[in-house]
Design a protein around this nucleic acid. Structure first.
Lengths: 200, 200
DNA sequence: CGAATGCTTGACGGTACTCAAAGATTGTGG
DNA sequence: CCACAATCTTTGAGTACCGTCAAGCATTCG
């Protein structure tokens, strides 16, 4: 796990596995900024500004493709080689965070949970992570709570309520029977489908 | 005002004036993602992805420096010329949004308001927008509410509470007597000071 | 089998939202 | 210059959503 305080010496792409990045307050409150899935960049931001601003934690075992350890301008030369792709990836990730901010700021608890599960489902779909209509989610309810700005207890109750509405099945770390249409309606999420994208 | 739905044909830097970008839900709930001050980039993201994902609205009269209207790769050539600077600017703005997400997700109402005023104050300071210890804020309480994920009424009450604690003076669109130290303590904001930065 | 982690439930309280309306301020046109 | 509209701020009352505390259950792991 990379701590918030340390300067990441490199940045990488995630080849396989799940992770997330987060910020914390001194008293321990934590906000998950983004879940990282295969193809996502890790730590570009910190490298560009030469100072880390969020921590990164793995949810599963990871395989990373690590890029150069250059400083400043040199870093940028590395990026230049892949620059267009990199820019597109960064833009996508920023868009994701924007959507999260909309959720956390303006959606109700059930809308937030609906939005998150839909969001993860769609991202996983684009990466072909769904097998037989089921997705293995290495995400606890505590993670969801921290991603959505909710308490753990309320997240749990909200999940139960949505399950009772048969919007999805979620148990034992597996997500199934996702009713995309109704989840989108509930969350008012009509964003474009996620495209497959990567640096290569 | 640029609507969310339309594709921005260009991107620009803000030379003078204030603006903000936002997302909305169908039923009208609005989340302000970021306030834009002189030096900030407008619409890079939309241009990179070739699809707008947030609206932009002016708070004052603006002067913009508009860049090319190229598509895809061509856009990127334009960016390449300024690429390092651009990347740094984008990274800064993403960091700002990350901080906002932390606030909206995990801070209480008074912490959020404290954070926002401190944040705007410090950004304005770096741009030398503060005259005689006072800053003209073209931001209504409704804007603050939409930036912080609070209701207008509660934002108002929170502002009053903080005023009574003499953490700042805010009236008639002017912000004064900002007690940075106590605001930072209240908001648990120990981020690095804002640096002056621009494309040029 | 005990410890650790994660999920679930109940009870209670408070923060923040909604509705509603009244001031204050600003801008505009006659 | 004043009256009127529009926008912004403030206040009150009532409530709901969501948080906190506390505990019990389930599952996994050593």
């Amino acid at each position: 796990m990379l701590e918030e305080g340390k300067t990441a010496r490199r940045f990488s792409t995630l080849l396989s596995g799940w992770a997330f990045c987060f910020k914390t307050l001194l008293d321990g409150r934590r906000q998950i900024l983004n879940f990282l899935l295969p193809g996502d960049l890790v730590g570009v931001n910190s490298r560009i500004l030469d100072a880390p601003d969020c921590g990164v934690e793995a949810l599963t075992d990871l395989r990373l493709c690590v890029f150069g350890r250059e400083q400043g301008q040199d870093l940028f030369r590395t990026m230049s080689a892949l620059a267009l792709n990199t820019a597109v990836l960064i833009a996508w990730q920023e868009r994701t965070i924007d959507s999260t901010l909309l959720s956390v700021g303006r959606r109700s608890a059930s809308e937030r949970v609906a939005w998150l599960l839909l969001h993860l489902w769609r991202r996983a779909e684009a990466l072909s992570l769904i097998r037989d209509g089921a997705l293995e989610l290495p995400v606890t309810q505590a993670h969801m709570a921290d991603a959505l700005g909710l308490s753990l207890v309320h997240t749990n109750r909200t999940l139960q309520a949505l399950r009772r509405l048969e919007l999805f099945e979620l148990s034992g770390g597996w997500l199934r029977q996702v009713d995309e249409q109704r989840l989108r309606t509930l969350a008012q999420d009509f964003s474009a489908p996620v495209e497959r994208r990567s640096l290569f």
